[in-house]
Design a protein around this nucleic acid. Structure first.
Lengths: 190, 190
DNA sequence: AAGCGAAACGGATCACTGTTCCGTACGGGA
DNA sequence: TCCCGTACGGAACAGTGATCCGTTTCGCTT
């Protein structure tokens, strides 16, 4: 239940979101809070009051993109040739989303227990979507490996967030490799 | 060509390595340099003189373990039931090595260009080993995906270094998933 | 043993970052 | 216009990696 918010509160929050969106593009989502606050024309304490953690700020800036990704799942299940193709395509859309966020590593890693705003949003909005898609692919035998959507989202995130800027490395290939592993029983380690 | 090293230099380097090995276990490989220097009974400048970057220090401490891992490759190729089983087993030994290094994420991520001491050592000592194993598995048709050892090492590293401490997550399962993806042609994304 | 010079030392300082503090300003209702 | 509670912001704090520079140590020569 939100109490009425003063004009300056709304104005400052708007300024912060706009500034962050811009600064994130030029300096990365791990740009110093001072830089974001300065770009918004507010003090750093104001930034913390509106967004207590970096993750909160990142979520606020990119919320609509994450929602769009969540909505893309069911659409892909209908339009893709197979459920597995839908899974692969969706995961690569997830890669695209993460990959454009320079400096995401720090935010992604942000909290050892993983209960940051970004992590929570992914669990709430993306995990169920991928769970449905994996189930559909499993029902037609395309996905065999007993891997949860949660684990897959987290692993893909790790691969992308920390991918090196190195022409010898291709993160999309490695994500495809991970996803193609879903197609068969998992080998035992001796 | 190393000039004669004074007694104090050798003594301090020894002290730093011993201290780091201990501090890394208790506080992680990303423990503050002050903590390592204090544990060694030297100044932080001395630490920097001996090991200019954190990665240099980590390499010095764990060099023998990495060498052991490199030597385990050929042995596994001879003893494992199949070349693919050797690949899988070796990769999991790599996971075990990385996984015991708490706080490795920061060191792993250390340099955007990737030319840290740790990265360099992996490329020099581990990449050729995995390359040989992948080649052997490829020759008998067990590995089909066109993935280089370099990329596989880096991806596994990303999965392990940033794995969350979360009972809902199983990094070994995700690494196994990645490796099992090697067994078949890579799907196309539409 | 003393002297010398170069190498090595270490703790203070610097710069940066996330975060908090607290005196001041602002918004909105009466 | 006044008042009160909310919101403000920039300085200060704490932590960290890294550097600076006056001091000490080592090893060689006499």
């Amino acid at each position: 239940m939100t109490s009425p918010r003063r004009r300056d509160v709304k104005r400052n929050e708007r300024a912060l979101l706009d500034a962050a969106a811009t600064v994130f593009v030029t300096s990365g989502v791990d740009a110093p809070v001072r830089e974001v606050a300065a770009a918004a024309g507010v003090g750093v304490a104001t930034l913390y009051r509106h967004f207590p953690t970096r993750s909160d700020l990142v979520v606020a800036v990119y919320r609509h993109q994450i929602d769009a990704l969540a909505e893309a799942g069911p659409a892909l299940l209908e339009s893709a040739p197979t459920p597995f193709a839908a899974v692969l395509s969706w995961v690569h859309q997830f890669v695209d989303f993460l990959g454009t966020k320079h400096g995401l590593g720090r935010v992604w890693e942000g909290d050892a227990a993983g209960f940051t705003a970004l992590h929570t949003l992914f669990v709430e909005r993306l995990e169920p979507v991928l769970t449905d898609m994996l189930r559909a692919a499993r029902e037609v035998g395309e996905v065999v490996a007993p891997v949860t959507a949660y684990r897959l989202i987290r692993a893909v995130g790790d691969l992308v967030a920390f991918a090196p800027h190195d022409p010898a490395y291709d993160v999309r290939q490695m994500v495809t490799l991970l996803v193609s592993g879903l197609q068969q029983p998992q080998p035992e380690i001796n």
